[in-house]
Design a protein around this nucleic acid. Structure first.
Lengths: 221, 221
DNA sequence: CGTATTCTCAAACGATCGTTTGATTCAAAC
DNA sequence: GTTTGAATCAAACGATCGTTTGAGAATACG
């Protein structure tokens, strides 16, 4: 294992494959995007995927790992800036959770595509993928839940996990721009995402703050 | 076109195909579930799909139409029971929106599978499917938005659509049981969904009631 | 009855899938 | 300059995909 040959090109073969796979997985899904589409978009040979990653499944895992590592550390960094402080508000913690995903979706290098890939991953029932995501998300989820518990002492631990779970679902949904409502055509994509994040933070803060009710809420049928 | 031959079997070939397709689409996705899997699970001949439905895409559309017609009419019926009345609360309207989906997910005939299919449809970028869903969902969405506007006169129309959109995303996410948090093993599936619906109604009501803010909420970065 | 229509079935179609192979090209090591 | 190993390439592998075909079975209708 010496230093890589062919290194004097714009981006390495592995990175080009990862970028192309990210974009195509976002558009056509994991089963819907073929390795021939991916390698053609990356302008590399078909065999390069199995050579560099081993298999299509391993490629999928690598697409996730590259972005999730960054997203997780960013969320934790934002959380640690406000966690345990006196003046910290619920909106601050939610912002630490949501903002990094928004920033990621605005990254030039395909972050917007990855957010859609992430939403697909939630919809996929693939057990291998679910375990992979749970390991990554569960780590930061516990730390956020602890901080929410500090700011909302009246809520049970399980209740907090419930609400944070809903926030995550709504976040994934909104960030991926899967809404039924079409945004106005004159509103740019990133302004749309920014507006969505603001709405979501207000929405989520109100939902998290809502006092717990002992019994069933609306019509108990 | 006379009455159908072969009618004297447990369930018709078309219905068996639809049921098997629903279950397999929920598990493996639209591209991930093959017609050979579907016809094998339905115990019908491979060619039966193209004979009865024309193509795989038409089969997918029919899987949606069968359930969405029922879900839409149920939601509208529930809405019309409370719309325009004096004592109607926000929770009542949200219940009219969420409860039919919960009931559908508890249907014996594969409704639980369809809810997962529905969540997949939101994650799919398929334009044909998006248009099909938008036509069905847009219809009831307008009526619900009108009632929400009556109960929340302080909110702009666009704001209501934003929030209702987020509720729909969170609903789809929660109903499909795609949460990160694993439910306790001793809690049955339908109890889990019931609890999720109650949480979602409380969460959504608080979010819908949250007064509008003129400027950006949390950290404006 | 016989004819017509609807439906089922086994088999095959061409296309595309993920993966593997073996030769070739390239850059560094000695 | 020769050797070495990593990287790329065209080509093909077997498997599976959605779809079509044509013959046969089952029902409906005269």
């Amino acid at each position: 294992m010496t230093s890589a040959p062919y290194a004097s090109r714009e981006r390495s073969t592995k990175e080009r494959i990862l970028g192309a796979a990210e974009a195509l997985f976002a558009t056509h899904g994991f089963a819907g995007a073929s390795l021939r589409q991916v390698t053609a978009a990356a302008r590399v040979n078909l065999a390069a995927v199995n050579y560099h990653f081993g298999s299509k499944d391993k490629l999928i895992e690598e697409v996730f790992r590259r972005r999730l590592d960054e997203l997780n550390s960013r969320r934790l960094a934002a959380l640690h800036k406000v966690a345990g402080k006196d003046g910290t508000s619920l909106e601050d913690v939610l912002d630490a959770y949501i903002r990094p995903a928004l920033d990621l979706s605005r990254t030039d290098g395909g972050g917007a595509a990855f957010v859609r890939v992430l939403a697909r991953a939630y919809a996929e029932h693939n057990e291998t993928l679910r375990r992979f995501l749970s390991e990554n998300y569960g780590h930061i989820l516990r730390q956020f839940a602890a901080e929410f518990g500090r700011l909302l002492p009246g809520l049970a631990k399980e209740e907090i996990y419930w609400r944070l779970d809903i926030v995550t679902g709504a976040l994934t949904y909104a960030m991926a721009d899967f809404g039924i409502i079409q945004r106005k055509s004159d509103v740019a994509e990133r302004d749309h995402r920014e507006t969505a994040a603001e709405h979501l933070i207000r929405f989520a803060a109100a939902g998290m703050r809502n006092p717990s009710v002992s019994n069933a809420p609306a019509s108990p049928r």
